[in-house]
Design a protein around this nucleic acid. Structure first.
Lengths: 216, 216
DNA sequence: GAATACATCTATGAATGCATTGAAAGGCAG
DNA sequence: CTGCCTTTCAATGCATTCATAGATGTATTC
């Protein structure tokens, strides 16, 4: 039944994340084990384990006998998510400034370049992927697996908001600012100015947050 | 067989954490599903799920077909853990300074007072519990569930080191300093000085780390 | 007409058996 | 004696089955 070497739980996990990030399931929707297992052509077990993982990562919530669901965005939760992201990502940026090699930076420059292109061609799926690549790439450069893990969880969690406000987001000034800010952060990292990198990252995330709450 | 209300996975989870924090299993030891399930009088399923959770939380590591094990302390890993803790806990402290009520502070003062007593009576188990109560209590006061979760995971992970160096730790100057530093942090929080609270927390964690590496 | 007790339905929780797989030991050939 | 190959075993992965909890609807009684 399975076709490759990757185990079922991992495939279930990726598939579910994909289903959420592509907005096939929306905030408030229940992700039922039986439904997903038939959709993904596997038994309940790996699906159930993948869901459990997503819950402990804070990406989904669980109600006792109702199932797992994508949390409904609330003002307070958004504040918490973005505040936490600020905390972690600013440290990540500062650590990255100390560790990054020229090749690392070149790779991320390329990501940012493709972000600009994706923006111009209005390919928002690509844009989202590249944004993720930038932030998680930076997390990797921090050389700290714990910060990296936190960063990834918080990033995904915050993505719920990005998608929720997607219709607004499109027309806002943010998408064009994003690659510019990303490049500024890379400048600071290239100059090994960890203070500045940290500060710019903080501001970058705060701006995203402030844009979101203006839209409510 | 079960005593109800709390599900088996949760009991398995707590039991395993307890087994690790009480040093019944040591770094490098494998935690096997069958072994644990017979020890805890339950089937493999809840044990397996609890182990998976501990792995995603970074508390345990997993080798392909060997099992989950308590990661061996390394200098690099210790650095990562404590650096990440600094990042998160300093933000937590600063947030707590903004949110804490008089009752919250009074509760934590009491924890610190009992820490001093535990130190004087050389009750190191109690000391560890109270230290946890202080740090996780503060995390709760941050009002940020995401920071709280990160904080808890990192705290537990760092505890592996505290226990690993326990024999040294005992004779070091740290244990007597801990309650004093905790009180200083509470002073800053009481004064609603979030900058200072953040800085003191940062230093507090860094001092613990520096003491540990000196002992290697 | 309202409230309560009970049945039923749905979704997860848990246990068990079989499949898979990686590692290590032991045998065989060079 | 050594290196490779095969066999075996121990440990998890996955599926199936059975159990159970919570929610909802319904009927009966006051």
């Amino acid at each position: 039944m399975n076709k490759n070497t990757e185990n079922s739980e991992e495939r279930a996990y990726r598939s579910i994340v994909e289903l959420i990030l592509t907005n096939e399931y929306k905030p408030g929707d229940f992700l039922l084990e039986v439904e997903l297992s038939s959709k993904l052509n596997m038994s309940r077990t790996p699906v159930s384990r993948a869901l459990a993982r997503l819950v402990t990562e804070g990406f989904l919530e669980r109600m006792k006998k109702k199932g797992c669901f994508i949390p409904l965005p609330t003002a307070d939760d958004a504040k918490q998510v973005f505040f936490a992201r600020e905390a972690v990502a600013s440290y990540v940026a500062s650590a990255a400034a100390l560790n990054a090699t020229k090749e690392d930076i070149a790779k991320l420059r390329n990501v940012v370049k493709r972000e600009k292109e994706a923006f111009l061609s209005k390919n928002k799926g690509e844009e989202a992927k590249l944004n993720e690549a930038f932030h998680l790439g930076l997390a990797q450069l921090s050389g700290n697996q714990y910060l990296q893990k936190c960063c990834r969880n918080l990033f995904w969690r915050s993505n719920v908001y990005i998608f929720y406000f997607d219709s607004f987001y499109r027309d806002a000034e943010m998408p064009q600012l994003t690659p510019l800010q990303h490049n500024e952060i890379l400048d600071a990292i290239e100059a090994k100015d960890s203070e500045l990198a940290s500060e710019l990252m903080c501001k970058h995330i705060r701006r995203t947050y402030e844009m979101l709450i203006k839209m409510r």
